[in-house]
Nucleic acid binder design. Structure first.
Length: 765
DNA sequence: TTTATCCCTATTTTT
DNA sequence: TAGGGATAAA
C-alpha cells in the first residue's frame, strides 16, 4: 500500500498532493497554465480508485473535449492498470447529456415527448430550422436574421429559459420577436424528433425536475464528481453539476478564470468565482507554479493578463530557465506572414531545435487558416488544420449523411429536405411538393418521410387515412424518393453501415452528382468515398446499434477531438480557442493586430463594455501560455478583409510584454515608387529587415503603403507568380481600385483579371 | 422548376 | 472573397 501511495504522489508538489488527496467535500482548484492540472486530475481519479476503493463507475469526470477524456483515461490506466478504469464515466457535458437521455428512453418519451430515435441537430441544421421558424412566425428573414435568432435562442437555453419564459420576461419588442421565433423553432425541433446542442444539457435537467427519481439514481451513482475547465461552464452546466453533486457533495472543480474564453457561449465566470459562496466548506487550492514554459514566456503572459481589471490578482511563477527571446515580427501582408512563418519553421527545424509536430500556428479567426494552409501546401511541410472545414461538414458528405439520418429518424425534416434538394433523386420535387408533404405530415401527425412512402404502390394500399395530394412532377418525385427509402429501410437491419452506403449510392443515383469530371468533382467524390471508409469502422457493430452510434459520434465530435497525435511530421494549424488545454514546444501566434486580436467587435464595444476586450486579452494569454520553449508573434501591415486590403496596427496586447524579453523585427520601409522593386522573389528575405530596439524608445515606424502603379492598356507588366504579361484592359472600380486584365506570356497562366491593389505587379514598359 | 447571373453583405470564437 | 439570396429567363 505505501508503495502505491508514493507512486501516485511522487513528483507532485505540496499543493498538487493536497488536490489529489482531499477527496471528501467540495474542492476548488485554481490552476494556472502549465501548473500540472491534468496530472492532478488523473492522479486524483487513480487515487480514488486505488486508495479509497471507489468503484470507477461511481466517478464522473467532465472534460472539455472527448479527446481530453480519452487521454486522461489512458494516463490513469498507465498509473493503475488497464482494466482499473472500467465503468469510469468520463466525457464532455454534451456526451453526458446524451447518455442520460439515451439511458432513460421511456421517461424521455413520456416527460419530454422525445422518441428514442431522436437525432442531434448541428449548427447547419439549426440554421435551416431557424430560417423556417422566422418564416413561420411571419417575419422577414432579411430583418430578423436567423443567425441572430439562433444565438438568442441558444443564449436563452443556456440559462434554462423556455419560449414562455422569454415571452414573459420580454423587455423590448425585439425580445418578443425572439420569443415568437423561439416558439416556432421548438415546434419544428420536436416535430423533427430532434434536439439541438443546448437541449443535450437542458433536457436532462428538465427530466430531473419532472422525475426526481431519475435524478436520485444519478446522484446515488456519482459519489465523486470532477469538472475540468470549470471557468468555461455556463448556467445549465452549473445546474447539472450542482444537481448531481447534491447528495454526496464531493465536487472537485478545476479552472482558471484567466483562461475563460467562452463568454460568448454564455460561459459564466461567476461559476468559478462564486464557488466558495455556493460551497462555504470548500477547500481552495492554488496551483501557481508553471512547469511548462520558459521564464520569459511566463513573464510575458503574466504582464499581458495583468492589464485585465476584472480579475483576481495572482502571480504565476516558474523555476524554468529564461529561455529564448520571444520574437515579434512585422510582415507586409498575410501572404508574407504565412511565408515567413513557414520559412522560420524551416529554419528552426533544420537547426534541429524542434520537430514539425512540436510546432503550432495559432490564429484568432478560421479565415486566417486559408492563407496559412496555402503557404504550407506549397512547402515541404505536412500540416494538419484543426477545425476549418470539417470533414463531416462538407456538403457532399452531409448529403449522404442526411440519408442515413432520415433512415434512422423518418421525422428528420431538415435532413429529408437536404436529400431532396441536393441528391439527383430529388429532382423535380420542389418547394410546392415539399409543402404538400409537410402539411400532410403535420395534420396526420406522421413522420415526414411517410408522406413520400405513401406514394409507393406496395405501401400505399396499407394506408387507411387520407393520402397527401401531390401533383404533376411532385407525384412522380414522391414515388421515386419514397421507393428509394423503402428499399433502404427494408435492408438496413441486415447490412453494415458501409453496405448501406453502397445501397444509398445506387438507389439515390449519387454518382450523377459527380459526372462532370472536373477536379472539384473528383475531390468531392473522393470525400464521399472517404465517408465509406469512415463507416467501415462500425463494421463489427451490430447493424441496429451501428447507425445510432455512428450518428451520435459524428454529432458530438469536436474540433479538438480531430487532432491527431500520431501525425508525425505535421505542423498544427489551430484557432486560439481550440488550442485551449494544449501545449507545444514552439508556438506562432499570427495576426496580432487591432481588429483581429483583439477582434473588431470587442474594440467597438470597448467604450461601454470592457468584458469582450478582456476576453480577447485572455485569449491572447491562452495563446502565449501554450508555448513551452519558443514563442513567435507576427502581425501584418496590411491584411485582406472583406475582399479589400486594409492597413493594420499592431495589437495593444503586445505592449506590456517586457522589452528585454523580446526581439522585435519590423519591416524596413525602403520601397518607393521611383525605384521599382526587384522582380521575382516575394519570399521572405526579398525585403530587408533590421533588428530594432524593442518597444519603448523606438516609435512605431511610419507605414508606407505599397504604391500602386497606374496601369494602362498595352503596358507590359511583371507579376511575382505569373511572370510577364500584357495589360489588355483596365476598369475602374467603385472602391478606387482598378481591375486589370492581363494576358500572361506563359500559356499556362493565360489571361487573368487582377485587382490592381492586390496583384503586386510592376510596369516594365 | 431549374438554372444562370448578379448583387449584396458579412467575418469571431464552437460543443 | 465567397457564399447566399433574389431575379429573370427558358
Amino acid at each position: 500500500m505505501s508503495q502505491m501511495v508514493t507512486d501516485l504522489l511522487t513528483g507532485l508538489n505540496e499543493q498538487q498532493q493536497r488536490a489529489v488527496t482531499t477527496t471528501e467535500g467540495p474542492v476548488l482548484v485554481v490552476a494556472g497554465p502549465g501548473s500540472g492540472k491534468t496530472r492532478v486530475l488523473t492522479h486524483r481519479i487513480a487515487w480514488l480508485i486505488q486508495q479509497m476503493n471507489v468503484h470507477p463507475s461511481q466517478i464522473l469526470a467532465v472534460t472539455f473535449t472527448n479527446k481530453a477524456a480519452r487521454e486522461m483515461r489512458d494516463r490513469i490506466e498507465k498509473l493503475i492498470g488497464v482494466d482499473a478504469t472500467d465503468g469510469l464515466v468520463m466525457g464532455t457535458f454534451h456526451s453526458l447529456g446524451v447518455r442520460i437521455l439515451r439511458q432513460n428512453p421511456g421517461r424521455v418519451a413520456e416527460q419530454l415527448q422525445l422518441q428514442p430515435n431522436f437525432v442531434i441537430y448541428d449548427d447547419g441544421d439549426q440554421m435551416e430550422l431557424a430560417k423556417t421558424a422566422v418564416k413561420n412566425a411571419n417575419l422577414d428573414p432579411k430583418q430578423i436574421t436567423p443567425r441572430r435568432m439562433l444565438s438568442r435562442i441558444s443564449a436563452a437555453k443556456s440559462v434554462l429559459q423556455t419560449p414562455t419564459d422569454v415571452a414573459t420576461e420580454a423587455q423590448s419588442y425585439d425580445d418578443e420577436i425572439v420569443a415568437r421565433v423561439y416558439t416556432e423553432y421548438e415546434k419544428l425541433l420536436r416535430a423533427a424528433n430532434a434536439v439541438d446542442f443546448d437541449d443535450l444539457l437542458g433536457l436532462p435537467i428538465r427530466l430531473f425536475d419532472q422525475d426526481p427519481g431519475t435524478l436520485a439514481r444519478y446522484q446515488q451513482q456519482f459519489r465523486y464528481i470532477l469538472v475540468d475547465e470549470y471557468q468555461d461552464t455556463n448556467r445549465v452546466q452549473y445546474v447539472m453539476v450542482s444537481a448531481l453533486a447534491e447528495m454526496y457533495g464531493n465536487l472537485f472543480v478545476v479552472g482558471d478564470p484567466d483562461q475563460s474564453i467562452y463568454g460568448w457561449r454564455q460561459a459564466d465566470i461567476r461559476n468559478i468565482l462564486d464557488f466558495k459562496n455556493d460551497y462555504p466548506s470548500a477547500n481552495e487550492i492554488h496551483l501557481e507554479q508553471n512547469y511548462r514554459s520558459t521564464g520569459r514566456i511566463v513573464q510575458a503572459a503574466d504582464r499581458v493578463i495583468r492589464d485585465n481589471k476584472d480579475r483576481i490578482d495572482r502571480k504565476m511563477t516558474t523555476v524554468n530557465d529564461d529561455g529564448e527571446m520571444i520574437q515579434l515580427r512585422e510582415l507586409a501582408d498575410q501572404q508574407h506572414e504565412a511565408q515567413w512563418i513557414v520559412s522560420e519553421i524551416r529554419r528552426i527545424v533544420s537547426a534541429h531545435k524542434v520537430l514539425p509536430e512540436q510546432i503550432a500556428v495559432m490564429y484568432r479567426t478560421t479565415a486566417q487558416s486559408r492563407v496559412l494552409e496555402e503557404a504550407f501546401r506549397t512547402s515541404e511541410f505536412r500540416y494538419q488544420i484543426v477545425g476549418g472545414v470539417r470533414f463531416y461538414e462538407r456538403r457532399e458528405v452531409r448529403d449522404i449523411m442526411a440519408v442515413l439520418r432520415v433512415l434512422y429518424n423518418p421525422a428528420d425534416t431538415v435532413s429529408l429536405l437536404r436529400v431532396i434538394d441536393n441528391l439527383p433523386i430529388g429532382k423535380g420535387f420542389g418547394p410546392a411538393a415539399f409543402e404538400t408533404a409537410t402539411k400532410w405530415a403535420t395534420e396526420q401527425r406522421r413522420p415526414l418521410l411517410d408522406a413520400l412512402l405513401t406514394q409507393v404502390p406496395s405501401i400505399a394500399n396499407q394506408e387507411t387515412g387520407p393520402l397527401p395530394h401531390f401533383s404533376g412532377a411532385g407525384l412522380k418525385g414522391a414515388a421515386r424518393i419514397g421507393t428509394a427509402f423503402a428499399i433502404l429501410r427494408e435492408k438496413k437491419n441486415e447490412l453494415t453501415l458501409a453496405e448501406i452506403f453502397d445501397q444509398i449510392v445506387e438507389v439515390m443515383e449519387v454518382r450523377k452528382m459527380f459526372e462532370t469530371g472536373t477536379e472539384e468533382d473528383l475531390q468531392r467524390w473522393a470525400n464521399v468515398q472517404e465517408l465509406r471508409t469512415d463507416l467501415e469502422r462500425y463494421d463489427l457493430v451490430p447493424s441496429a446499434e451501428a447507425l445510432p452510434a455512428y450518428l451520435e459520434q459524428v454529432a458530438l465530435i469536436s474540433d479538438a477531438d480531430t487532432i491527431k497525435d500520431d501525425n508525425i511530421g505535421s505542423v498544427t494549424l489551430i484557432t486560439l480557442h481550440s488550442a485551449k488545454g494544449l501545449e507545444y514546444p514552439a508556438v506562432f501566434i499570427a495576426g496580432a493586430e487591432e481588429g483581429l486580436l483583439p477582434i473588431y467587435r470587442a474594440v467597438e464595444a470597448e467604450a461601454f463594455d470592457e468584458s469582450a476586450m478582456e476576453e480577447e486579452r485572455r485569449l491572447f494569454y491562452v495563446g502565449i501560455t501554450r508555448a513551452q520553449k519558443l514563442l513567435y508573434i507576427t502581425y501584418a501591415q496590411s491584411r485582406m478583409t472583406h475582399g479589400q486590403y486594409r492597413a493594420g496596427t499592431i495589437s495593444r496586447f503586445i505592449e506590456p510584454i517586457p522589452a528585454e524579453s523580446m526581439r522585435r523585427v519590423t519591416r524596413e520601409a525602403h520601397r518607393t515608387s521611383a525605384k521599382p522593386r526587384e522582380y521575382g522573389r516575394t519570399e521572405p528575405g526579398s525585403f530587408t529587415s533590421r533588428v530594432q530596439q524593442p518597444w519603448g524608445n523606438a516609435p512605431v515606424p511610419k507605414k508606407v503603403l505599397p504604391v500602386i502603379p497606374d496601369f494602362q492598356e498595352g503596358n507590359v507588366v511583371f507579376h511575382p507568380k505569373f511572370g510577364e504579361g500584357t495589360v489588355t484592359s483596365v476598369t475602374a472600380r467603385r472602391d478606387n481600385d482598378k481591375e486589370v486584365t492581363v494576358a500572361f506570356k506563359k500559356a499556362e497562366y493565360g489571361t487573368k483579371r487582377l485587382m490592381a491593389s492586390l496583384a503586386n505587379m510592376d510596369i516594365i514598359s
